[in-house]
């Protein structure tokens, strides 16, 4: 397997760093080599926050990636900033609840998901990041559904009341991802 490099970006506080961590954890338990490299800065909330997760069969070389194979964006500025960088043949997942514009690229697969809307339906308005994770896992199959779901349960183990809604958000995203794959392929 070649390296899989996933860039996840949004406003600070939207939880993309957490989504990245859950993906990295799942891949690690799957026996893969992983790295998780966040942008860090003074903007703890509201600024842009992104994380790059690299998943590989070999020890990860550079965790710093200019051209990722997949991009998950929660907001417009992130699409603007990173949209052009995705490798040809790569994947862009766009949260339409906050991104009004379409991606103009024709050399990548673009998946549009109303992550905010699906999160609200799942009963956790703040879980749009988990919907995005679900979409990516569903579309790419990079890790199994069950393993990713287990990571969510593990992450929220100390706040168990959040588990059902986050799992529901993940399911909604996962189904959307699987559907896109069928439709696109």
């Amino acid at each position: 397997m070649a390296n899989t490099e996933v860039l996840m970006a949004g406003f600070g506080g939207q939880g993309m760093l957490l989504s990245g961590k859950l993906l990295a954890y799942a891949a690690m338990y799957d026996g893969k080599e992983v790295s998780w490299l966040p942008s860090y800065g003074p903007e703890m909330r509201g600024g842009t926050a992104n994380v790059t997760v690299v998943i590989s069969d070999k020890p990860v070389g550079s965790p710093y990636i200019i051209e990722p194979s997949a991009l998950l964006v929660m907001n417009g500025p992130s699409l603007e900033k990173f949209g052009a960088r995705v490798k040809k043949g790569g994947l862009i997942v766009i949260n339409t609840s906050l991104v009004a514009v379409a991606c103009e690229r024709t050399d990548v697969t673009v998946v549009y998901v109303d992550a905010g809307g699906l999160a609200v339906k799942a009963g956790a308005a703040r879980a749009a990041n988990i919907v995005m994770l679900g979409v990516y896992v569903g579309y790419s199959g990079i890790v199994s559904h069950d393993l990713a779901a287990k990571m969510i349960e593990k992450e929220f183990a100390e706040k168990a009341k959040f588990i059902p809604a986050n799992l529901a958000a993940f399911e909604a995203g996962y189904s959307a991802g699987v559907e896109s794959r069928k439709g696109g392929a």
Binding site: E33, S35, P38, Y64
Partner: peptide, 10 residues
């Protein structure tokens, strides 16, 4: 460097 401090790895 800052990357070593900030990045997560197994």
């Amino acid at each position: 460097d800052g990357m070593i401090g900030q990045m997560m790895e197994p």
